[in-house]
Structures are given as structure tokens and as C-alpha cells.
């Protein structure tokens, strides 16, 4: 069998498809809209008074399945209120090992760490992909509007007592 009709059938269907509007878009001229809940990178937040939210409780470090968070807790007086409280120093998040599971956001008791929608730009060295504390607070200043949830919002979603219309 020469499969002549079969070949013509395939060619015809290809022709039909080629005359349709293409599905591909010219990225980066056209950027695909991202879902509001997209989670890509991280930010550490400060509260309304400007004090760091992170108290260095290490819950995120313990819960991370890939063990990419490392931080040390220090106790020092707050620059805003003057009272001594816990802070994190040397907070590093290794984005290379992160599996974007959002568990660190879930367990944070002070809503300090959130996930933002904007992805980190690729870098030339491994150090570029390790988020240091400065970078994280920087993300918090600049990209916080790109995050949709912190621990409180997630807890509200998952509240077993939640009642809504």
C-alpha cells in the first residue's frame, strides 16, 4: 500500500492548521498574563512602623523540605520600639534548591516571609541565586504588591471554622 490517500489527508490537515491563527506569541514583546496567585520568589516584610517582622523563630527553616533556609536568631533592642526582641540575622534562602512549596510562608507566625509573583532574574554565578537578607527585604520594599498571601491569608483560607456565603 502506498498510503497515498493517507498522506494527502495529513497534508490537508496541516494546511488547514497553518491557515489558522497561530497559538504562539512573540515573547518578550507579548508577556503572558500571570495568575495573581503565582508564586516565584520571596520577600521579607516589615510592619507598618518599619520594624522587621521576622523574629527569628526558625519555623521556616525547620519546615522547609529541601532545607534551603538558614538563619541565626539574635536578640537585640528594636530600633522602633526600643524593646528587646528576636531578630533574624544572616537569613539566606537558596533559591536553587527551593521547590516553591510555600510551606515557609504557611508556618510563619508573624507573616514575615511571603512569596512574590516576580521571578528572580538568572545570574552568572551561584551566589546570584542565593537570596540574602538584604535582597529579601529589598524584594519586600519593591515587590510586595506582587504577593497575594502571607501566612494569615492562607490560614484564613484553611480555617476549619470558616463560614462564608
Amino acid at each position: 500500500m502506498l498510503y497515498l490517500t493517507a498522506t494527502l489527508q495529513s497534508l490537508f490537515s496541516t494546511l488547514r492548521q497553518s491557515l489558522k491563527k497561530p497559538t504562539t506569541v512573540e515573547y518578550p514583546k507579548v508577556v503572558r498574563p500571570r495568575a495573581p496567585r503565582l508564586r516565584a520568589s520571596f520577600a521579607l516584610t516589615k510592619d507598618a512602623a518599619g520594624d522587621e517582622n521576622c523574629i527569628g523563630c526558625k519555623k521556616c527553616e525547620k519546615v522547609c523540605p529541601s532545607e534551603v533556609i538558614a538563619l541565626t536568631t539574635v536578640k537585640k533592642p528594636s530600633p522602633i520600639t526600643g524593646k528587646s526582641r528576636g531578630y533574624a540575622s544572616d537569613f539566606t534562602l537558596n533559591l536553587q534548591g527551593c521547590i516553591i512549596c510555600e510551606l515557609c510562608v504557611q508556618v510563619c507566625p508573624t507573616d514575615a516571609i511571603v512569596m512574590v509573583q516576580d521571578q528572580e532574574k538568572p545570574g552568572f554565578s551561584r551566589e546570584d541565586l542565593v537570596l540574602t537578607m538584604d535582597k529579601l527585604y529589598d524584594n519586600g520594599e519593591k515587590k510586595l504588591r506582587l504577593s497575594w498571601a502571607n501566612a494569615s491569608v492562607l490560614a484564613e483560607h484553611q480555617n476549619p471554622e470558616r463560614k462564608h456565603a
Binding site: 495573581p36 516589615k46 507598618a48 512602623a49 518599619g50 506582587l146 498571601a149 484564613e156
Partner: peptide
């Protein structure tokens, strides 16, 4: 000044992302 600018609103959440379908 960062505190003052951000003090106006809590961490801003995208419209509609947290709203739940009843």
C-alpha cells in the same frame, strides 16, 4: 522613609487573588 510610604496600607494583595468563590 520606607516605613511611611508603606504605612499607608498593609502588604498589598492583588485584587481578587484572595477572594474565594462562594
Amino acid at each position: 522613609d520606607g516605613g511611611a510610604a508603606a504605612a499607608a496600607a498593609p502588604p498589598s494583595l492583588l485584587q481578587g487573588a484572595a477572594a474565594i468563590e462562594p
